[in-house]
Design a protein around this nucleic acid. Structure first.
Lengths: 327, 327
DNA sequence: CTGAAAGCGCTTACAG
DNA sequence: CTGAAAGCGCTTACAG
């Protein structure tokens, strides 16, 4: 059996209270006692049971992360950073891949509550989370407007969209199409679309957006992309709301014998490490993933610690154009 | 404050014991009482505190996952599947990105123990884990031989390596080079290298392997790849132990004006969804990531539940050659 | 400087 | 069918 505090106490010839004091470095303990206790702990290979501690302290040091799927490179990298930063601040991460499915999100949410997480980072719809937030659970959203009171961290989506479209226009594209996920008003990512539409309109062009119904389904993606070529054989510019869409588009373009960037130019969004390695030629708008993660966790920790003084409701981090050879 | 079992009891006019019975569906309860309790729970929006439950049951239903980083598409996808399968079996996932750093691994391991995880999935070195395993912690390794007693799940690395090299030889490559991580005897992934060496030797060729010191550092990768071209300008075939190496090699080849597959052919390893989308032209050996995850979790759960009857020490899942246009 | 007692929110024998 | 008591492993007033 795992040793517990009373085993250590017995071996060290002190009370459990004293062992706890040594463990937590609290109150006065004589140097001698401390050493005895330490020795006993080593001998028994003891470490404290955090479940018991959490129960007493009403603090789990657990953070829940709900996002669509770590299979996606953007979320995979985001998760890495979120977890690593959490760890550096003494928090542990409970991971939930919801695939954007509402039923899963609800189950995960309840699971996180039951496990007494101190806070949640949300990267999915999750309107249900509102209820919990009201019960003063700390929440920070990434790229989602969940409510008036939940802070959102995101890249500067509007600016990113603007840069992308302006580049395509500058490069002389005539028929510029936008590929995005389904219109959901609550996502700042929609700002990429808004930027596209604004810049197009301002330049006397008609915005044309194609929506991929299930963002994480490859088939769904490919069908939409095929349709674009069928509907607009003369498409010569594409701004995709993520790099995977962009890549799929390029693949299809090549399949149809079109030269990129000769006949059609493409700009993506995200600019993950993985894209940089697998598809370095892609021109894309790079999100500052590490900063997004850092900001989100820092805000969450502030909320957890009850410091609401400096919590901006919106944090927009700067994007960066990475010019490859697809434009 | 969050309602607790005694609040529900009070409201329903019963004892906490009875509420607990309703909660756990244990023992006899009159239909009427059950309904009263349910109503009270709904009214208070009560759900049980799993921390308290874990403490009593000595069962956390928590699984720890230690791997290098979810930023890497192979591990990102693996993590998704591991988590999803765990969730479907009622287990929750505590995520740890160790970046293969021993100090981090040790800290994570201790953290997981303190949190009373029921089992751990390991995808890193982590020799330290042995000690814990002995203290009968359930452990399953993915692509790592950690000890004689820890089950390993992996793709059929040797077979995959063989297929890759045979393909390159068939296609007429003369100077075939292998890129891998640093030689670590404990990884079944080394079997990819062994296969390479065996097939090369059997065909009267001299195997040449280049090692990337820090697998997750892009610079490190690129330097090694540059060196390959400098040392062997006539290289016309490469088997990379993962798709990212393969992609970096292709990028460098193109930069040097070489045609792929005309002048140099490339085969990767992993075949993640992400690679399929971002670099569909890559010929690669695809690992059955979902099956690996499923097998690993199922074995772990068996261990956790004390059913050691059918736990094979080694599970090698079949790979699949995906032929793109880089060969 | 140290310890006995009570309690964190649950569950499970045990008794009725 | 239901409840009072004890205990999971810890911590923190409180007393000494």
């Amino acid at each position: 059996m795992k040793p517990k505090i009373s085993d250590v106490a017995k071996l060290a010839g002190v009370s459990p209270t004293t062992v706890s004091r040594v463990l937590n470095n609290r109150g006065y303990i004589s140097e001698e006692t401390r050493e005895n206790v330490q020795k006993a702990m080593n001998e028994l290979n003891y470490f404290p049971n955090d479940v018991a501690r959490s129960l007493f302290n009403k603090r789990s040091n657990l953070i829940g992360i709900i996002l669509p799927t770590t299979s996606n490179p953007f979320f995979g990298e985001l998760t890495f950073h979120l977890e690593n930063i959490s760890a550096s601040l003494g928090y542990k991460v409970l991971l939930c891949n919801s695939l954007n499915r509402i039923d899963k999100e609800e189950k995960y949410l309840e699971m996180l509550m039951r496990n007494q997480v101190d806070g949640i980072i949300v990267g999915t719809h999750n309107r249900g989370i509102l209820n919990y937030h009201k019960q003063n659970l700390a929440v920070v959203a990434i790229d989602r407007n969940l409510s008036e009171t939940i802070p959102v961290v995101s890249s500067d989506n509007y600016e990113g969209g603007k840069i992308a479209i302006k580049l395509l226009i500058e490069k002389g594209c005539q028929t510029i199409i936008h590929i995005n996920g389904q219109k959901e008003l609550e996502t700042p990512a929609m700002l990429r679309r808004n930027a596209y539409e604004d810049v197009m309109n301002n330049n006397g062009r008609t915005p044309i957006t194609y929506e991929v119904p299930d963002v994480f389904d490859r088939q769904s993606q490919q069908q939409v992309i095929s349709k674009i070529f069928d509907d607009y054989p003369n498409v010569d510019g594409v701004f995709a709301s993520n790099d995977l869409f962009a890549a799929s588009f390029i693949t299809e373009a090549k399949k149809r014998g079109l030269d990129v960037p000769g006949q059609v130019k493409v700009v993506g969004y995200d600019g993950t490490e993985t894209t940089q390695i697998l598809l370095p030629e892609l021109t894309t708008i790079q999100q500052p993933i590490a900063s997004i993660a850092k900001t989100a966790i820092e805000l969450l920790v502030k909320e957890i610690e009850g410091d609401f003084s400096e919590i901006p409701l919106e944090t927009r981090l700067p994007v960066k154009l990475i010019e490859g050879t697809t434009t």
